[in-house]
């Protein structure tokens, strides 16, 4: 990067902070920083205030571990949601995506990660025990496992399913298969097998 004589410390600091963000490399960090030089004081203040507020006001829901401004969150305390069905997701952002579809009206449980044996992440590092306790106290009838179709996501689903299968609770996973807009020619056989298994009759 630039040498110390020509670049101010203030600039370098901001570049360093930006490059810590996901998906932002040194080039983008530089571009963002020089963009910030040009914005108005108000804009800059609003941005820093929004970030500070986020850290002050956002907390994790004591029930479902989604991020929220009040705990329990809006979904957990809602009276119109179906409390007999629960959808298990990896991250808070997954809740937003599923909510946006508008086709699901049950509860959620955010695991805050996935089991990854080779990275040393086991069930004890996630909100899995909390989930097991929750399905009993809520008398859940159906569980939807909506972890990602990655190896880690599948391991996590299998682990939870092993537990649930002994408890007589209906369990399903999201359909696995070909992403819309993909190409059969370049699809790996595991995805293809899942897509074949999950094929649907045309009406």
């Amino acid at each position: 990067m630039e040498n110390d004589n020509t670049t101010s410390n203030v600039i370098t600091n901001l570049i360093t902070e930006f490059s810590k963000l996901p998906g932002i490399g040194p080039k983008s960090a530089q571009r963002l920083t020089y963009y910030m030089v040009k914005i108005t004081k108000d804009q800059a203040f609003n941005l820093s205030k929004a970030i500070a507020e986020l850290k002050e006001k956002i907390l994790s829901c004591s029930e479902c571990f989604n991020i929220t401004e009040q705990s329990p969150c809006g979904i957990c305390s809602s009276e119109t949601r179906d409390t007999s069905i629960i959808c298990v997701v990896e991250q808070p952002i997954d809740v937003i995506h599923i909510e946006r579809t508008g086709v699901y009206n049950g509860l959620y449980h955010v695991l805050n990660g996935v089991i990854s044996p080779i990275n040393g992440i086991g069930p004890e590092n996630l909100k899995i025990n909390e989930f097991f306790q929750r399905i009993f106290s809520l008398q859940i009838k159906e569980v939807i496992l909506a972890t990602n179709p990655s190896m880690e996501g599948e391991v996590t689903s299998m682990y939870i399913n092993n537990f649930l299968s002994e408890k007589n609770i209906k369990t399903s996973v999201l359909a696995r298969g070909l992403p819309i807009g993909s190409d059969l020619e370049y699809t790996d056989d595991l995805t293809l097998v899942k897509a074949l298994e999950g094929r649907k009759l045309l009406e």
């Binding site: 044996p117 190896m151 599948e154 391991v155 299998m158 790996d188």
Partner: peptide, 24 residues
């Protein structure tokens, strides 16, 4: 390109825990 995806391993928690251990 995949030569072998070891589908049976990936569908069984016990086999997968063993495969992960051997791989590491």
């Amino acid at each position: 390109e995949t030569i072998e995806s070891f589908r049976k391993i990936k569908e069984d928690l016990s086999l997968l825990s063993k495969a992960s251990y051997m791989a590491e």
